[in-house]
Design a protein around this nucleic acid. Structure first.
Lengths: 142, 142
DNA sequence: CCCATATCCGACATAATTTATCGGATTTAA
DNA sequence: TTAAATCCGATAAATTATGTCGGATATGGG
């Protein structure tokens, strides 16, 4: 039932970036890029893994990336427009309560499984809950 | 985010037992005990694992057990009174979105974790959803 | 009484998944 | 040209989930 580490690290990184962004809003300096190294050092998360997660977030357009020296990442999208569901699916793949619900995997006991259909409704309720929770809510603790 | 196999097998077993019970209500024979072997054979789930799960369900008072030859299990409780949350906690342990929320485990990065508190609220919403869903709803597909 | 068939339970083996790391390519500013 | 960054395929290590084994106990039937 748990979120995996990638989602956890992603949330931590996004919150860190959002905090930095907020605190630089008052100053006149442009909101700077933040490197994966800076994030990993600050949050004490494994560097390589953190870097990979940032790359994924960039690929899925949650954040912008700038390559090269002085490069890094920056939140571009409105975090209130992204749901926790979006983040989970981006990092963990399709959300499903049981393997059978994920069409890629085919379960060895699907012929005798009597709860596939009943669980579908519950699955949808869970998904809806995550869809209705924005990243901003979680990150700013609203 | 998935339910583990134990919960899945437990739901399957409970539904099977409930179905048997319902179909025997019309007849005059008493609702019989169902053995772990019968359940595993019918549902094509691994016998030993299935047996262990039934034992756990019995220990946690979801079902009754009768030992000895001709023994087996029987649903006793009102399934509408048991929530999916109860079942999950009985078979998977405390529900938590991240390891840190489970007090037994202590996370290595808790000193820098900035999302622990924010996730607490989401965790509670998820828990409430499962608490508000009864086993009967899932098993009878209401 | 003995045997077959159950539940019960500790310990272990195996499989699968998650988490983390490595190696090297490309990009870009100083 | 070099240093610091993103990028990405492949793989190693660790953890967890799943499944199995061995033997104890309980109980009804022959």
């Amino acid at each position: 039932m748990q979120l995996n580490r990638r989602v956890e690290y992603a949330l931590m990184a996004l919150k860190f970036m959002d905090d930095q962004k907020k605190s630089s809003e008052n100053s006149t300096t442009a909101p700077g890029l933040i490197s994966a190294k800076k994030i990993a050092d600050t949050l004490k998360t494994p560097y390589e893994l953190t870097a990979r997660i940032m790359q994924t977030l960039s690929q899925k357009d949650f954040i912008d990336s700038i390559q090269g020296q002085q490069g890094g990442y920056r939140i571009q999208k409105d975090l209130s427009k992204i749901s926790v569901f979006d983040l989970i699916e981006a990092l963990e793949g399709p959300m499903a309560l049981v393997k059978c619900q994920d069409k890629e995997h085919q379960c060895s006991i699907s012929s005798t499984c009597n709860i596939l259909h009943p669980l579908e409704k519950l699955n949808q309720r869970v998904q809806k809950l995550y869809q209705n929770t924005s990243l901003l809510e979680v990150i700013r603790d609203i």
